[in-house]
Amino acid sequence: MRTLPGVRHPPNPRVPPPTCDGPPTASVEALFRDYAPRVRAYARRHTSPDECDDVVQETFLIAWRRRTELPADPLPWLLVVARNILSTRRRSGRRADQLWLAAARDLWRMPDHASPETAVLERERHLAALAACTRPEREALLLVAWDGLSAADAAAVAGCSPRAFAVRLSRARARLSRALDAGPAAPTLTPRLAQETS
């Protein structure tokens, strides 16, 4: 159970046989092109922008070194590796709590059909609702909604059991809805972001 560090419930055993086709670097290059942006987007929520590239680099070097262990769907595996790297590079944990906000604001896909004002307002409402969630709840929401993971894979990345994750996600969705029903965005949101990014 140690092929995936820190994960007590690893993803489904979908490990393909090692490939012998082409130079080994081709596989890591393809892996990088396909998944590095998602890994970096995950890292953006957990560390400062200037460290994200380092986290991505370390993640893919580990993927290279352990390429025979990569599952068919490598994103959850890569995110677990990135999470572990982030954990060992941990800085001031509480400060990192606010990094997600800058990342979510930057990476929020703005719709083409809405006016900019409407789109920004909707984004801020939802970010404020996310801010009302606890850190684990928020992470659960974003692992599924943004990183595109299944609940089982997200549980592996979150480092908890699938059952615990399901409960967490359910609570998160409920809290998110309640926060949206409660009212407009918290006025302190922007100043706190400014503190983080300045």
Binding site: R109, P111, R123, H126, L142, A145, R173, L176
Partner: peptide, 10 residues
């Protein structure tokens, strides 16, 4: 709102 989040996935 969860669907909204998904819609705005980067």
């Amino acid at each position: 709102p969860f669907d909204v989040l998904t819609t705005h996935r980067p």
